[in-house]
């Protein structure tokens, strides 16, 4: 694995820039990779909508634009699959914190909260 290159003072402005080394991943490249990850599949995003279909730990959320999204409950979600059907029966409005799933057309729900109830 490539190690982080040492930081050198910038000759012109005194800012820190990565030292260029052959065959080593530059810090700029690593930072840009991390940025891409944080705005890409690994970034936690939020969506609000109504739970319209539930099957085991999988549920469909219909957003305000009428578009339906398929979510899978993640292993780190505090919710259990049997807590999902009541949300569907009540057509509950929920807020889901999610990430994208790799190699699946689905989103991974890490936490869920009722959006139609005042926060406790």
């Amino acid at each position: 694995m490539a190690t982080l290159p040492a930081l050198l003072p910038h000759p012109a402005g005194g800012r820190l820039v990565p030292e260029r080394r052959p065959h080593a991943t530059s810090r700029a490249a690593q930072v840009s990779f991390l940025r891409m990850q944080l705005s890409g599949p690994l970034a936690m995003k939020t969506m609000e909508g109504v739970v319209t279909i539930v099957q085991e730990g999988r549920f469909q959320l219909t957003d305000d634009g009428g578009v339906s999204h398929l979510f899978l409950l993640s292993h780190d979600a505090a919710l259990e699959p049997e807590q999902l059907p009541p949300l569907q029966h009540r057509q509950a409005r929920v807020r889901v914190h999610y990430t994208a799933a790799r190699n699946l057309i689905a989103l991974v729900a890490h936490s869920l909260e009722r959006a139609d109830m005042p926060a406790a």
């Binding site: 549920f59 699946l104 057309i105």
Partner: peptide, 26 residues
């Protein structure tokens, strides 16, 4: 559709028309 299972192995395996590949969790 019925079980609300996501499409997986998105892409083409290169092995004929069988793009699902195998039975899996999804």
């Amino acid at each position: 559709e019925w079980n609300n299972l996501p499409a997986d192995n998105v892409g083409i395996t290169g092995h004929s028309y069988d793009n699902t590949g195998a039975l899996s969790a999804n």
